[in-house]
Simulated assay, not measured.
Amino acid sequence: MASTTAQPMGNLPSGLGICTTLPDIFYLPELVFGGLVWILVASTHVSPPNPLGWVMFVSVFCFVLTFLWLVLFACGAHQNSSAWAAADFVYHFVAVVFYLSASVILAFITLLRKDLDPFKYYQIDIAAVVFSYVATLFYFIHTILSVVRWKSF
């Protein structure tokens, strides 16, 4: 007998269903890697402050909003509507654009500061760049799958 736990693509899950359905399964990796970017950038010397301020803004903004989005879906506040599916796509698309811009800036600043910072800070910055691109990838996959879900409504 086939299992009936899988939901059709057009339905928005709630409760623990967000831990087992696509694209919602990507919330946790987005939070983990976004949090790592936030921690790693905050743990090094922030110079120049302006571009790295953008990186911090993006990582904190996306972390907080992804957590709130996760809570809204877990509580079932979305009422399984097409508007929530569209909002999910729009938010994740904005997150992809923000994270991609922050990742490029972070990589560029890390490359510029290579010879000026101690090697320990350079290694931390490299880790932040890698985690930033991984977070961008997770947000991108979530965006693509959100579009598919939105179009299936």
Rank of each mutant, 00 (worst) to 15 (best):
G35A: 05
F93T: 08
T110V: 02
G76D: 01
M56F: 05
L52P: 04
M56C: 05
V58Y: 03
C19R: 09
T44S: 11
L65N: 10
Y139I: 01
Q79H: 11
G53H: 05
P48E: 04
F33W: 05
A85R: 13
I105T: 14
L116Y: 09
M1R: 08
V41M: 02
A107R: 03
N11A: 12
P49C: 12
D115P: 02
L72N: 15
S47H: 11
V41D: 00
S152A: 14
S82A: 15
L100W: 10
F61C: 04
S132Y: 05
A102D: 03
Y121R: 05
A127R: 04
K151S: 10
Q7R: 12
V32E: 04
M56W: 03
A107T: 07
M9V: 14
L12Q: 07
L31M: 13
S43E: 07
H92S: 11
D125G: 12
T66I: 01
V60I: 14
F140L: 15
W69C: 10
Y91C: 08
L52D: 06
D88E: 15
I141N: 01
Q79C: 12
V147F: 08
S146E: 02
R149F: 03
A85S: 13
N80G: 03
V90F: 07
A127W: 09
A135G: 09
A87E: 06
S3C: 11
P49S: 14
L22Q: 13
A87Y: 08
G10H: 15
L22C: 12
N11S: 09
R149E: 10
F131L: 08
A87R: 12
P48D: 08
V130H: 02
L52A: 00
I126Q: 12
V148Y: 08
P13F: 03
N80W: 04
V148K: 12
L111A: 13
N80Q: 05
G53S: 04
L116S: 14
K114Q: 13
D115V: 10
Y133K: 01
H92E: 02
S82K: 10
I105L: 14
S101L: 11
P49D: 13
G35H: 05
H142I: 00
N11M: 10
I141A: 14
T66L: 01
T143M: 09
A2S: 13
Q79K: 15
L28I: 14
I124M: 15
Q123Y: 05
